[in-house]
């Protein structure tokens, strides 16, 4: 009797529809695109600033367009989603063992949130918003 194993092929482009957990993974990955676009916009702002105040004012005016405001709201929502999902899995990559025991995941993830909020407050304060 000879072996004749049957191979089931995984669809290369639609595999993530097979399971909700794959969809959640894709959501985490795709939301980072908005963070990327936002970073490019910040860089463009810096370039405009270096070109003089007229150019910079023009850049600010473009930011106030409804389409731009909508993009910023979307980017904010998606980057929050991206941040939460990454913070929540951070304990897997950075477990902290003190003595005989590991800290609970909630403490390691919680630490990320605390540092995040702290840094955000610092930057807002430094930028004169608060």
């Amino acid at each position: 009797m000879s072996r004749r194993p049957y191979v089931r092929v995984v669809p290369r482009t639609t595999w993530f529809f097979r399971h909700p957990r794959y969809m959640r993974y894709m959501a985490r990955e795709v939301t980072c695109i908005f963070i990327g676009i936002y970073s490019v916009m910040l860089l463009v702002g810096l370039v405009r600033l270096s070109q003089g105040s007229a150019q910079y004012e023009g850049f600010l005016a473009a930011l106030r367009q409804p389409g731009s405001v909508l993009f910023h709201l979307l980017a904010l929502a998606f980057s929050l989603y991206n941040t939460f999902t990454w913070f929540n899995v951070a304990p897997k990559a950075l477990p902290v063992q003190v003595g005989d025991e590991h800290w609970p995941d909630s403490v390691v993830a919680g630490g990320h949130y605390v540092v995040w909020v702290g840094l955000s407050l610092f930057i807002l304060f430094w930028a004169g918003v608060l």
Partner: peptide, 18 residues
């Protein structure tokens, strides 16, 4: 790419993703 599915299904809570 850190999908994390392995840790969801491991019957022994090995947590391979970690």
């Amino acid at each position: 790419t850190f999908v994390g599915a392995c840790s969801d299904v491991c019957p022994k809570h090995v947590d391979p993703a970690s």
